[in-house]
Amino acid sequence: MKNPKKAYVYKGFERFWHWNQSLLIFLLALTGFEIHSSYTFFGFETAVDIHNKAAWGFIILIVFAIFWHFTTGEWRQYIPTTKNLQAQVEFYLFGIFRKAPHPTKKTLISKLNPLQRIVYLGLKILIIPVMVVSGLIYMFYRYPQGDEIAITNIESLEIIAVIHTFGAFVVLAFVIVHLYLITTGHTITSNLKAMITGWEDLEEEDEVDEKKDDVESTNQKS
């Protein structure tokens, strides 16, 4: 890396959000697949208890995270871009083995590479909403009962359960790949350290043109 400079990349809330989210997803997956009868760990009843409470924790965390993203303007980090997309894919497929430089430069206003942007955006606007909505229906659905009016009546839980399970597999697959990609920073542990302490060595932004490009492309998309 040329001219490494320590930068405060992940703010306090961001790290709080990230680590609590990781813990909650871990708990939700662990208990969720127990409810799915994939294994026995806590016992069914405890698993359901934890799953429901962790779900509420997750929802509260999401509300705060949404607020944070919009008030800080950090949501712009997730605007998808095709710039460098192919280069990024080629980096993971070939360049990484040659110790080639990262094709996307990490800067404070563009922390994510184009692949991360697409994947995280997909999680935020597709997978997590699907999990939250199907999860809430799972919690609040009512079987039709007599004459009582209930807008949450559903005839069968099956479709909800299948969607929820599908989402769970996708999230788990993401976690596996995500955990591995932590090690693909400048050093094996630099990404992990950054998410714990907030500080990371970033390349000095000496090439003014490129920086300008980044800002422009971000602004255009917004």
């Binding site: 799915h36 009868s37 099956e158 359960a161 299948v162 399970t165 599908f166």
Partner: peptide, 12 residues
């Protein structure tokens, strides 16, 4: 009916 813990979609 579908019961969590008993039923699943095997293909999924």
């Amino acid at each position: 009916f579908y019961m969590p813990g008993r039923d699943r979609n095997e293909l999924l």
